[in-house]
Simulated assay, not measured.
Amino acid sequence: MNYLYSLLFLLSLSVSAQTEKDIEIVDSLAPKLENIKWISGNWKGEAFGGQTEENWSEPSGGSMMATFKLINDGEVSFYEIEIIREVENSLILQLKHFDTDLKGWETKNETVDFPLIKITPTQVIFEGMSFEKVNENEMNVYVDIKNDNGDIELVKFNYKK
């Protein structure tokens, strides 16, 4: 009888592990641009005490690209150019910052890189930045940003089309 209980116990663990594995497969999407195309569009929001604009292209040529602009008191504070591209069966988000006169913050060959962690039907999670689909016309972007003390702080951008 103990043998039967042990066998049933092991079988239940096997079924439980299989179920968790299946849930993960169903929840996670392949690292393909086609699975994140919902990010594309012209988005507007507020952050850093000003107005933000972020415009993402549809996937083409193995990448998506975006421009970002922050406006404070009627003047541009800074710009960004961002890309998400397919690299070695994964995705990477890369960006560069620019002053109002388009002088780069990073050196010529330097980018700020965010490797992909996971894609779900409503989230694209990169290391240090993630996108969350609220609905067809709203998304949240979360970015880890170093504050003046050197501590990492999570900043939320709420965008609407």
Rank of each mutant, 00 (worst) to 15 (best):
Met65His: 02
Ala66Asn: 06
Ala66Tyr: 04
Thr67Val: 04
Thr67Asp: 09
Phe68Cys: 03
Lys69Ala: 13
Leu70Tyr: 07
Ile71Thr: 15
Asn72Val: 11
Asn72Pro: 00
Asp73Arg: 05
Asp73Pro: 00
Ser77Glu: 15
Phe78Tyr: 15
Phe78Ile: 15
Tyr79Ser: 02
Glu80Asp: 15
Glu80Val: 13
Glu80Ser: 13
Glu80Phe: 12
Glu82Thr: 12
Glu82His: 08
Ile83Asn: 12
Ile83Ala: 12
Ile83Val: 15
Ile84Gly: 05
Arg85His: 01
Arg85Asp: 03
Val87Pro: 04
Glu88Met: 02
Glu88Ala: 13
Asn89Gln: 09
Leu91Cys: 05
Ile92His: 05
Ile92Pro: 02
Ile92Ala: 08
Gln94Asp: 03
Leu95Asp: 07
Leu95Ser: 08
Leu95Thr: 11
Lys96Asn: 05
His97Ala: 10
Phe98His: 06
Phe98Glu: 08
Asp101Leu: 00
Asp101Trp: 00
Leu102Tyr: 14
Leu102Pro: 03
Leu102Asp: 09
Gly104Thr: 13
Glu106Phe: 07
Thr107His: 13
Lys108Trp: 01
Lys108Phe: 06
Lys108His: 04
Lys108Cys: 02
Lys108Met: 05
Asn109Ser: 10
Asn109Met: 05
Val112Gln: 09
Asp113Phe: 10
Phe114Tyr: 15
Pro115Val: 06
Lys118Cys: 08
Lys118Tyr: 08
Lys118Ile: 09
Ile119Gln: 06
Thr120Asp: 13
Thr120Arg: 06
Thr120Gly: 11
Thr120Ala: 08
Thr120Phe: 03
Pro121Asn: 14
Thr122Ala: 02
Thr122Asn: 11
Gln123Cys: 03
Gln123Asn: 10
Val124Phe: 04
Phe126Pro: 10
Glu127Tyr: 05
Gly128Lys: 09
Met129Arg: 05
Met129Tyr: 01
Ser130Arg: 13
Ser130Phe: 09
Glu132Leu: 12
Glu132Arg: 08
Glu132Phe: 09
Lys133Met: 05
Val134Lys: 13
Glu136Phe: 04
Asn137Met: 00
Asn137Ser: 06
Asn137Ile: 02
Met139Trp: 02
Val141Thr: 13
Tyr142Lys: 12
Ile145Tyr: 07
Lys146Gly: 06
Asp148Cys: 04
Gly150Val: 09
Gly150Tyr: 07
Asp151Arg: 00
Asp151Phe: 00
Ile152Val: 15
Leu154Ile: 13
Leu154Tyr: 00
